[in-house]
Amino acid sequence: MALILIVEDETTQRFAAKFSLEKAGHKVIEAVDGIEGLAQARARLPDVIACDVVMPRMDGYEFLAALRGDAQLAGIPVLLLTSLAERADVRKGMRSGADDYLTKPFKFAELVEAVQGLVGKRVQRESQAARSALTDLEAAMQSQKNELSLRYEVQLLNELNARWTNKDQANVQLQFADAVLVLVGVFAGPLPASPGFSEADEMRAAYQFARDQLTLFGAQHVLPCGNDILAVFPADVAFQEPGEAVAHAWRATESLVRAVPVQALARGPVSLVQVADPMLGGASTQLVGGSAYLEAQVLRDIARSRGWAVVAAEVLRADLESANALAPGEEGSDAQEPFFRVR
């Protein structure tokens, strides 16, 4: 049984949500807006919060920002309940720190399922500190299989990666003059075996987990590169704020760092090419080039040799400080080295 806080100004919706969750075995407390919700959260420390977006006095985004700014409450999983189905509003909620969302109208069975997924996620987070990195990866993958649904695939993944899955295109090439790269060493060592799963199943699940997390936090392209996974966050997009690509890349890195201990961040030009081979029945190969990718590979090797979880190119230091990835002057390496360790 978990303690669930429902923050919803509409009486009928709040009553029905409470009834459904209590029927599923949870204990439920209520609040009619964000201000009352914060007071309830501080007094009761719920396991999960289900919060409406459009409310008087303090809306769901403001409530979420206040929650994440409170050290005592920042780790509580939040499920956003919204009638704003546009992709931009969904992304806004996820960038603000939400763990999941449901679009109204929804079935209350879906609410129960989503809440139970977040309860499991919180239990998993609390146990991760006592586990090894490989055990963390297995637990995270199993949790994400249930928690991340086709909603993310349809709304966030298909549109972004359509040009990579179009079988009618023999060759696709993309060039970014300025992009932030996250190189994730998912397959740096042997994956833990699970009953009923082959090594190929484990590799596929590891890639799926990392791809979902990276795409969720704004990566426009995620692709396997040998034993690594590469995520591309374009920085030369006109509508982005300065440093937004770095902030998104860091949020993705944070979401993976406990489960995947070796990650490298670099910035610069990168080229992506998909080449189809008619001699192999149209099977395609994805090629990556550019100075940023070469630098990311070097940084990955440095991280492994020094036992660091994350290493970044020196050019990213100021933006990572702005994104609260590290305090000014904290961590780092010799001043002569063009890279530094990220705490």
Rank of each mutant, 00 (worst) to 15 (best):
L73W: 05
L326W: 06
R258Y: 03
N146R: 15
K107Y: 11
V310C: 11
A65Y: 07
E147H: 14
F239T: 14
A312R: 02
A247S: 13
V288A: 10
Q208C: 04
F340P: 00
D319P: 06
G34E: 07
R211K: 11
E254F: 03
P261I: 00
G93L: 02
L81E: 03
A179Y: 09
Q263E: 06
P242M: 06
V270I: 12
Y207S: 04
M58P: 06
A16W: 15
P77W: 07
V342K: 01
L223I: 12
G34H: 05
V237Y: 09
A205R: 09
G117A: 08
G25R: 05
W250Y: 14
V78L: 02
K121L: 15
V260T: 03
Q297M: 14
S333L: 15
Q169S: 13
H26V: 08
L79P: 02
A114Y: 05
T215E: 07
N171K: 12
C225Q: 14
A170I: 12
T215L: 15
G268L: 06
C51I: 02
L45H: 15
A238K: 12
I4D: 03
A276P: 01
L265A: 03
E314T: 09
E314A: 15
E331Y: 14
E36F: 11
I49L: 06
D70E: 08
T165L: 15
S143G: 14
G34C: 05
H248L: 15
H248E: 13
C225N: 12
Q220N: 11
V232E: 06
